[in-house]
Every structure is written in structure tokens, then in C-alpha cells.
Computed example of a mutant assay.
Amino acid sequence: MESSIMDTRTANHLLYHSIRDLYEGMNMRLNQQIPMLLVERHALNDAIIKEKNVISTGDLPETRGLCLSKELTVASLLKGPRIGGGRSVGMRTRHHKLTRRCQVNAIFVLYDLPRLLTRSVLAYELMHGWLRLHSN
């Protein structure tokens, strides 16, 4: 309990800014200010369900952090329809993710983890954010 990070303010002050500085020192500048929040398990699970667009079966994997981003998926036509019997027949579509300009909305990290573990989870999720922002 002595080394547990219990609130967002402490995590931002002690960890977040030093990890951003470390990335910048490796020429991996984050071009966006990404909000970082410490959250409870249920809030993290709810965010996972919404981000991954899955149905909760009550059996979610052990997750300690999440990088939330916004991307667009559209269906495009592979084969145009034929008109037969007054309706469209034989149309096929394929889903495409359009991520020309990805926006990272937030990073969630589970609260009450030891400082070193919180730091490693945050560094891992910030790397996801950097990759999403620089994947163009």
C-alpha cells in the first residue's frame, strides 16, 4: 500500500510527465496532449467493452490499462448488386478501417497498483498512443 498510486493527480505529477519526457528524449514526441486517468476496475471494463465493441460475458481478461482512440470503419462494395425479381441480389461488401488521422482520446490506468507497475502500464499505453498518432 505504501507505493500504491491512488489518484490521477499523483500519477500525472510523478509518472506521466517523466514518461513523456523519456519518449521525447528518444525522438518520439507525442504531438497531442493525451489525458491520463486512474480508474476503478468497472470503469476500465466498461471502456474496454465500448472500445473493442464486444459484448460483456462477465469474463473480461485482466487489464490494467487502455489507450482509447477514435477510428472510422466503413463498408465498401466489392461486387455491385444485380437486380433480380425486384430486389438486389449478390452484393458483397468489405469493411475498411479509415484511420488517416487517428485521435487518442485518453489513457486509462487501473488505480491502486504499485508505483513501478503503474509506471510500466502507463509507458505501455503511451506507446500505443504514440503508435496510433504516428501510423499515417
Score class of each variant (00 low, 15 high):
Leu122Met: 06
Lys97Val: 14
Thr73Tyr: 01
Gln103Ala: 11
Arg101Trp: 12
Cys102Ser: 12
Ile34Phe: 03
Thr118Val: 02
Ala106Val: 01
His42Glu: 11
Leu98Gln: 01
Ala123Gly: 05
Arg29Tyr: 14
Asp46Met: 04
Gln33Lys: 10
Val104Lys: 07
Ser56Ala: 03
Leu126Asn: 04
Lys97Leu: 14
Met26Asp: 13
Asp7Phe: 04
Thr99Met: 09
Arg119Gly: 15
Gln32Cys: 00
Met36Asn: 03
Ala123Asp: 07
Gly86Cys: 00
Leu37Ser: 09
Ser18Tyr: 14
Met36Ile: 10
Val74Asp: 08
Glu24Asp: 12
Gly80Ser: 07
Ser88Gly: 08
Leu37Thr: 06
Ala11Pro: 13
Val39Asp: 05
Ser3Glu: 04
His95Phe: 14
Ala47His: 02
Thr8Ser: 06
Ala106Thr: 01
Ile49Thr: 05
Leu131Thr: 15
Ile48Arg: 05
Pro35Cys: 05
His96Tyr: 11
Asn45Ser: 04
Leu77Phe: 02
Leu15Pro: 14
His17Ser: 12
Cys102Asn: 12
Met28Ile: 05
Met6Trp: 08
Arg29Ala: 09
Met6Val: 10
Arg64Cys: 11
Ala11Trp: 01
Glu51Asp: 08
Arg119Cys: 13
Gly65Thr: 09
Asp7Ile: 02
Ala123Tyr: 07
Leu126Phe: 07
Ile107Trp: 04
His17Leu: 14
Thr118Asp: 00
Lys50Val: 04
Ile34Pro: 08
Arg101Gly: 11
His95Gln: 15
Thr57Arg: 08
Ser3Thr: 00
Ile55Thr: 15
Tyr16Asn: 06
Cys102Glu: 11
Ser69Gln: 02
Leu15Ala: 04
Leu116Met: 13
Ala11His: 00
Leu131Phe: 13
Leu98Met: 08
Leu131Asn: 14
Met127Ser: 09
Leu15Glu: 00
Arg29His: 15
Ile83Leu: 06
Met6Asp: 14
Tyr111Pro: 13
Gly85Ser: 01
Leu30Ile: 06
Val54Glu: 10
Met36Glu: 02
Leu15Trp: 08
Ile19Thr: 03
Thr93Lys: 11
Arg119Glu: 11
Ile48Pro: 02
Val89Asn: 04
Asn31Met: 12
Leu68Ala: 10
Leu116Tyr: 12
Leu110Pro: 05
Leu78Met: 05
Val39Ser: 00
Lys50Gly: 08
Met91Gln: 13
Ala75Gly: 05
Ser120Arg: 10
Glu62Thr: 00
Met36His: 11
Cys67Gly: 06
Leu14Glu: 01
Val89Thr: 06
Val74Cys: 04
Leu37Met: 10
Met127Ile: 08
Ala106Cys: 05
Leu113Arg: 07
Met127Cys: 09
Tyr23Asn: 10
Trp130Ala: 02
Ile19Pro: 02
Glu40Asp: 12
His17Arg: 13
Asn105Leu: 01
